[in-house]
Simulated scan of single mutants.
Amino acid sequence: MKNTPIVLILFTVYIMSFTSCLKDMTIPVYFQIDSVDFSADYITYGTASHKITDVWVTVNGVSVGVYELPAKFPVLTSGKVKLQFSPGIMMDGISSRRPSYPMYTSCFETVDLDVDTVYSFRPSFTYADYVDFAFKEDFEDAGLKFTAIESSPPLEKTGDPKNVFYHKGEINNYSGKISILDTGSSFFEIITNDAYELKNTNTQYCFIELNYKMDIPENDNINVEVGLYVNTITDQKVQRPLIKIKQSPTWKKMYINVTEAMHEQSAYMKDFTVYIKGTTKAGVSATCFFDNIKLVYIPL
């Protein structure tokens, strides 16, 4: 019986420790991510312009959610942990399609966390080193990688500062410009000069990235479509629209999914060209500006 007080003391310590552990398991830490950084070597990857809208977060390899930026959210964890932040985008400009973008790297950090504490992070991303580019059109070189079809207005370069795309730290002297005049054709169409042999046998993922804006009178519209002309093994040409671009008077960044169309057509596809076309009502003037058009892919 002399040992009873010692047993009670040990039992009390155990209960207190167990209760403390349970308490720690129910008190979260808080992660705050207001924005992200993105960098890219211009010679290798082209512009570092991006539209990362979300961050996918894992803790010790377990997903804790996808968060639209800026974000502050609770996480039930503590102690030393390994964090992974992956960049999310709006694929095809659609808010309901928000995957982790496979062309960009993830960001990893190892931190020691205390419960009931706010931790701020600013993940940094770049292009993954296994990514390749079929073409990059930044309109800075002498030639152009797109040509207007017959009867379409021509694709030109503009150096007008108010219409040239600009990204901090980069030399941006020109952007692409194509105008529909109220006295001319009510459409335009440009197509890549080269065809690209990307298919499911040699390519895992494929996207078109581009910056764009439109100049059009108020209350008028222009319908702009991006797609592929698939050249088949039987020498047929099949048009495969990808998306309609939302009208915008300011520069926007878009990520267009080519992977689904590429896999869908691969059984009979030899190669494909990329087209951009626009139409207006008769008598409407409109100008579209494009820059940093990239056909980016991950080879198998």
Rank of each mutant, 00 (worst) to 15 (best):
M1E: 15
N3P: 07
T4A: 10
P5C: 05
P5S: 04
I6F: 06
V7K: 05
L8W: 14
L10E: 10
Y14K: 02
I15V: 14
I15G: 00
I15S: 04
M16R: 04
S17F: 11
F18C: 03
F18D: 07
F18A: 15
L22M: 11
M25Y: 09
I27V: 12
I27G: 00
P28F: 08
V29R: 00
F31C: 02
S35N: 15
D37F: 02
Y42G: 01
Y42F: 15
T44C: 01
G46C: 07
G46E: 08
G46W: 03
A48F: 13
A48G: 13
S49W: 06
S49Y: 10
S49T: 13
S49I: 09
I52H: 00
V57D: 03
T58P: 00
G61F: 13
G61T: 12
S63G: 08
E68S: 08
E68N: 10
L69G: 01
P70V: 09
P70W: 07
P70Q: 11
P70F: 05
P70D: 09
A71S: 13
F73V: 09
V75H: 04
V75F: 04
L76D: 05
V81S: 12
K82S: 14
L83N: 05
L83R: 04
Q84F: 06
F85I: 08
S86C: 09
S86N: 03
P87C: 04
G88R: 02
G93M: 12
S95G: 08
R98A: 07
R98D: 10
S100Q: 12
P102D: 09
M103V: 07
Y104W: 13
Y104I: 06
S106H: 12
